[in-house]
């Protein structure tokens, strides 16, 4: 907590400095940055909705502050939602969990019931940054940052997670899978804020898993990420499955052929082969600084097999 407070102070100091600079004059960023910390979600929505220039929601700040520091964005308004009561809770709801927008990654990782129910989602959360970064980062932020390589988004989508979004027109529920719109973009409208993310109840004999490929063991960005969420019957046959790929297209992908390849199987070799082929075939990656197209296509198949097996073993309680 002390560290968090210190960090917070550091960030705010930076923001204040920017504002002071802004007071002195003219042109460019000199119009200044406004920092607001509204007491309610409605007030936050109003602030965002009335913003003239670029406005950003500040939760953990692990993306926004870094983007500001590296001059990638120059927001006119930062709306800090951390002081809004009720957003920093994980609540059991209808057999599932509702995770508030300002719940940190570490708070999820340390929530035993959540970890036991949705281990694949936690796989994704655990891979975000370091422990220190996860002490601030939120999954709502991970989602709203719009990166196709976000580690928590594929397992959330595979889990059928639903975001509750509050905006000028009221509240709506939207599947997490439907929010990404391309690198840095979401399908959220002006003034809309993700209030919480709901992970549903689980059927018996279910398991999920997420893995990513990175050249380094941590503190890296997914070159490819694969999430699998599946449910078995009592004999070990997959009766439903969702397979979601990250970092291989402008948004996450959920290729129907991947799920098809394993539903009705016990993940026999042929099924896994088919899954790998379907995953590779679905990729629409780019060559970039993080990996080549060819490599991503190959590794998507490799990971899909591995992750499906892991989810399957979890469903059978052998891992």
């Amino acid at each position: 907590m002390l560290l968090q407070a210190a960090r917070e102070k550091g960030n705010l100091a930076k923001i204040r400095r920017a504002t002071v600079g802004g007071d002195t004059g003219q042109g460019g960023s000199m119009t200044g940055l406004r920092y607001e910390s509204p007491p309610t979600l409605d007030a936050a929505v109003a602030l965002l909705n009335n913003a003239k220039g670029l406005a950003r929601v500040l939760a953990g700040g692990t993306d926004v502050i870094v983007q500001m520091e590296t001059d990638l964005i120059e927001p006119e308004l930062l709306v800090d939602i951390k002081k809004i009561p009720g957003l920093r809770t994980i609540v059991a709801e209808n057999g599932g969990f509702r995770i508030g927008a300002t719940v940190s990654g570490m708070e999820m990782v340390e929530h035993a019931a959540l970890c036991a129910t949705w281990p694949g989602v936690i796989d994704g959360v655990k891979l975000i940054g370091s422990i220190q970064v996860k002490g601030r980062a939120t999954i709502a932020g991970n989602l709203c940052n719009g990166s196709p390589a976000a580690d928590s988004v594929p397992p959330l989508a595979a889990a059928g997670a639903v975001a509750r979004v509050i905006g000028p027109q009221g509240t709506r529920e939207i599947a997490v899978a439907k929010i990404p719109a391309g690198p840095g973009k979401t399908h959220l409208g002006k003034g809309e804020i993700v209030e919480s993310i709901f992970l549903p109840a689980r059927a018996k004999h279910s398991g999920d898993a997420y893995e990513r490929f990175t050249p380094r063991t941590e503190m890296d960005i997914a070159v490819v990420g694969v999430a699998v969420n599946l449910t078995l019957d009592t004999s070990g046959v997959v009766i439903s499955a969702r397979v979601v790929l990250g970092a291989v297209a402008p948004t996450i992908l959920e290729p129907a052929d991947c799920a098809k390849a394993i539903v009705g199987t016990r993940l026999e070799e042929a099924a896994l082969e088919q899954l790998a082929a379907a995953a590779s075939a679905a990729c629409r990656p780019i060559d970039d600084k993080r990996g080549t197209r060819e490599f991503r296509v190959t590794v998507a198949g490799v990971l899909a097999r591995r992750v499906a097996q892991k989810a399957y073993d979890r469903a059978r309680h052998i891992a």
Binding site: R17, A18, G21, T24, G25, G28, M30, G32
Partner: peptide
């Protein structure tokens, strides 16, 4: 400049 913001501007 007297601030980073002024310098950047």
């Amino acid at each position: 400049a007297t601030s980073e913001a002024a310098a950047k501007a």
